[in-house]
Design a protein around this nucleic acid. Structure first.
Length: 447
RNA sequence: GUGGCCGUAGCUCAGUUGGCAGAGCAUCUCGCUGUGGCCGAGAGGGUCGAGGGUUCAAGCCCCUCCGGCCACCCCA
């Protein structure tokens, strides 16, 4: 097969590349609903929305996420622009949000700065259900203040959103503290020393991890590695005093909020920038470690990216995974993609009359469809039925001549003739004022 | 990146030891020229994921690739 053909699998028909897909109208019902919940809950809590660019300089992610992490070392979509600069499609948003915080001088805003985002992200990974090369994350960040109460708020909000989505009970909150960078460095050294003469018993991957990120050895699933992890020195014993107090405070606040969590001393997280608090929402099913969301504190990131010392905490979750879970639980979401009325017409004069009638109905907030390209009453009624319209307006030459219209109740099959100018008010009465789709963007302000 | 299962119409799937590519649903048309659903008749829609090989003959056997799913890895 030639290179050209590799990306095109079916005789000239171009398909989507591996791991990406269309979001069709039925899936947008979920996306829209989830975004609505996220926006609502975060707006209530004083967060404001931010969008960072889809691509950034590669260095942002290398520095921010960590060059040795899986994300950076093997999962990024990196390319060069025409001037040879290395750019990367964003694999996550926290680094970009911190860059934006610095670049836009947000340190001069009242602290902490609370931001949220709903954005597409990209990772070159082997696809599976709920795991795609382009995926949508929502997330939020509290930047500029350090207090365990903020961490508790972050976890609370994440859990609250899950509750609104009907999936909170499916997930267990895994919680850990990985300490300050200093204490982590010390602990990493202790671990490295512990494993020094045991390297032969480790799996190939762990041998490599030992040099890059020794804490990763703790959650390896290989049997021999697992046994060693059991007797390895514990992070908790090497936590600095500050982190210990911070973690104890956080647990106190979570208890106060009535949030259940599981302490997981082996929870590490794949991104380098975390400090102290780390947490993930894990599938409660036995043995499952699939996460729909995770986050933690990253007090060093802003400084690492060239800003001043700025503590921060945040959370992010995958929308496709949330949808997969909602579907598995047979949770359906309300949506407004239903029409109120179908306008059926016969003959050119009627069609002309219907054009303004359709416009008037829509202006009044009645969701209206017509089949302007077809010319048979039978076809029109059949379409009205297929679209599930509760009412159909029928206009023919007779009605145009008599300046009336027929309103047909599709469920009962009865119909009545009303004067043309009474059609809109009559329809509104039938649909119910409260069900109208009135669009208002709010008053514009000038000057 | 490693291993396994899978790929036939828009959807769900039959297709026998290799022998003319099928069904149900959906779509469109007609029966019914201005009245939907039900019913009946008909039509369109496929290079059987792609390419190559074996064979008189391949949806079926062999190889490669593409794609989906699952387990790793990792994460959201």
């Amino acid at each position: 097969m030639t290179e050209d053909q590799e990306e095109i699998s079916a005789g000239g028909i171009i398909q989507t590349p591996k791991g990406v897909h269309d979001i069709l109208p039925v899936d947008h019902e979920y996306h829209t609903f989830i975004k609505k919940v996220v926006r609502h809950r975060l707006r209530q809590a004083g967060f404001r929305r931010i969008s960072t660019p889809i691509f950034e300089f590669t260095e942002l992610f290398q520095r921010g996420i960590g060059a040795d992490t899986d994300i950076v070392s093997k999962e990024m979509y990196t390319f060069q622009d025409k001037k040879g600069r290395s750019l990367t499609l964003k694999p996550e948003s926290t680094a970009g949000v911190c860059r934006a915080y610095i670049q836009n001088g947000m340190a001069n805003l009242p602290q902490p700065v609370q931001l949220y985002y709903i954005e597409p992200h990209f990772r070159y990974d082997r696809p599976q259900k709920g795991r795609y090369r382009q995926f949508c994350h929502f997330g939020f960040e509290i930047i500029g203040e350090s207090d365990a109460a903020l961490d508790s708020q972050t976890i609370y909000l994440a859990n609250l959103i899950n509750k609104d989505l009907g999936i909170a009970d499916l997930f267990t909150i895994q919680l850990n503290s990985i300490g300050t960078p200093q204490s982590r460095k010390e602990y990493a050294k202790v671990l490295t020393d512990f494993y020094f003469d045991k390297e032969r018993s480790l799996c190939e991957q762990c041998k490599a991890r030992l040099k890059t990120n020794p804490m990763r050895l703790l959650d390896c699933k290989e049997e021999s590695c697992g046994i060693l992890a059991q007797i390895a020195p514990k992070m908790a014993d090497y936590l600095d005093e500050e982190s210990k107090v911070f973690h104890a405070d956080l647990k106190e606040y979570l208890d106060e909020l009535g949030i259940k969590y599981v302490e997981n001393p082996n929870l590490v997280r794949g991104l380098d920038y975390y400090t102290k608090t780390v947490f993930e929402f894990w599938d409660s099913a036995e043995g499952a470690q699939n996460a729909i969301g995770g986050g933690g504190r990253y007090d060093g990131l802003v400084e690492l990216l060239g800003g001043g010392p700025t503590p921060a905490v945040g959370y992010a979750a995958g929308i496709e995974r949330i949808i997969a879970n909602m579907k598995r639980e047979k949770i359906r979401v309300p949506h407004k993609d239903v029409i109120h009325i179908f306008v059926a017409q016969l003959g050119k004069e009627a069609k002309k009359k219907c054009l303004s009638l359709i416009a008037d109905l829509r202006e009044a907030g009645v969701k209206t469809m017509g089949a302007l390209g077809k010319d048979s009453i039978k076809t029109h009624l059949r379409l009205a039925d297929k679209f599930g319209a509760p009412y159909t307006i029928i206009m023919g030459l007779t009605e145009v001549r008599e300046k009336v219209g027929i309103i047909r109740d599709m469920k009962v099959g009865t119909q009545k003739t009303v004067p043309y100018e009474k059609i809109v008010p009559e329809v509104i009465k039938l649909i119910g004022k409260e069900n109208l789709d009135k669009y208002s963007a709010g008053e514009l302000l000038y000057g």
